[in-house]
Design a protein around this nucleic acid. Structure first.
Length: 367
DNA sequence: AAACGCCGCAACCGCCGAGGT
DNA sequence: AACCTCGGCGGTTGCGGCGTT
């Protein structure tokens, strides 16, 4: 049985509200309070349906609504809550005083979502995007001191881009080639990182009394996925490794893909799924020094992307200011309005721009 | 100056669950 | 149990403003 419409729409006005209508609605609610939305428009003399009145009140006319730009703190809160709650905008709004679910939803869709996509982060899963999987296989080959395999993987990757949709965006390719060239220049560094990576995993397992061995390669991970025999324990195991590593443009970290679609099969419970996602993104990122970066607030979403201040590939090295901040704080603590989306974007993209040293790998040769 | 395209946001739509009859 | 109302939610749409050509 179909549900009856909330009101008789014949003769009722739709579209943008006029100031007169706003005034009528506000006056009525100030006298009688909100509620009984069905009868409210009739009593208030409005040619609107109750639903429209309620939306207008809750999303725009309510006196406690905070208007204007979202602060950096608000933005971070939204991202973190979204990673936990998903598209539960009302739940997110409940934790952001003065902001409505509609406003947060719009802000997410028009600003944050796009920014995360440009950063290579899946806005749904909050994990690095699927194309990093292929990138990781290239980098992993190099970690294993197999440049030939790396080049082969890269070649396959490029060939695949000639079919339908590109698997890797240009920034990812640039990152890949840059890292390859850096590896050529500093072979010891990478092996050190790899050893460190393995040590971290071992330490983590001791702490968690786990007996599962660390995944030795990206291939092993891929086999797990493709084999279909992927239990919740395995997923947990994977996420432990991710927790140890955090996420950074570090080679070994990239060898551990985070895409949620791959990590969690449909039969994995939502609880496992959600818990793992939260852990993957928001545990404090381990660093070689063992200390979190002081450049970001503790537990900052963006701190998850921080690697190591002393490391050549640290995001810190290319970010002097939290790039997500829409309105950087000045000395008095007020927000500077001159910050533009372009400026924010430049922060985001800067840590993906690793210039290729001259005389190193030339992708055009492969293509 | 006009045309065009893009973007952001307010508003709408359809669905759902809770609660009442 | 069935039906209905109501409030709430998330997804989508459409319009106006703005920048670019």
């Amino acid at each position: 049985m179909g549900r009856a419409p909330c009101c008789d729409k014949n003769g009722l006005k739709k579209g943008p509200w006029t100031t007169e209508e706003d005034a009528m609605l506000v006056n009525y609610i100030q006298k009688h309070g909100p509620g009984n939305w069905r009868n409210l428009p009739k009593n208030a003399g409005l040619q609107r349906c109750g639903k429209s009145c309620r939306l207008r009140w809750t999303n725009y006319l309510r006196p406690d609504i905070k208007r204007g730009r979202f602060s950096f703190e608000e933005e971070e809160t939204i991202i973190q809550l979204h990673s936990i709650l998903g598209n539960k905008w009302s739940a997110i709004a409940a934790r952001l005083p003065g902001r409505t679910d509609n406003e947060i939803k719009n802000y997410w869709n028009t600003h944050i979502r796009k920014r995360l996509l440009r950063m290579g982060i899946d806005p749904v899963t909050h994990a690095p995007r699927i194309d990093l999987l292929d990138l990781s296989s290239i980098l992993n080959s190099y970690v294993c001191n197999n440049p030939a395999a790396a080049l082969l993987n890269l070649s396959n990757l490029l060939n695949s881009t000639q079919q339908q949709q590109p698997l890797v965006n240009p920034e990812m390719l640039r990152l890949a080639t840059s890292l390859l060239s850096i590896k050529q220049a500093n072979p010891e560094m990478c092996s050190q990182n790899y050893n460190l990576h393995q040590n971290q995993i071992s330490n983590s397992q001791e702490q968690n009394n786990q007996v599962l061995p660390p995944l030795q390669s990206n291939d092993q991970f891929q086999n797990l996925i493709q084999g279909g025999d992927f239990s919740a324990d395995m997923a947990k195991h994977m996420m432990q490794q991710i927790n140890v590593e955090g996420f950074s443009p570090n080679m070994t970290n990239l060898g551990c893909p985070l895409s949620q679609e791959n990590i969690f099969p449909p039969n994995l419970s939502a609880d496992h799924h959600q818990t793992a996602v939260s852990q993957a993104n928001y545990v404090p990122c381990s660093t070689t020094s063992g200390n979190p970066s002081p450049d970001y607030p503790e537990n900052s979403y963006f701190q998850s992307f921080n690697y190591n201040k002393n490391h050549d590939f640290s995001f810190d090295s290319v970010m002097s200011t939290p790039y997500s901040s829409p309105t950087p704080l000045n000395s008095s603590g007020t927000y500077i309005n001159s910050s533009t989306e372009d400026e924010k974007e430049s922060y985001c993209s800067s840590w993906l721009k690793f210039e290729i040293p001259e005389g190193t790998l030339d992708i055009s040769d492969i293509m």
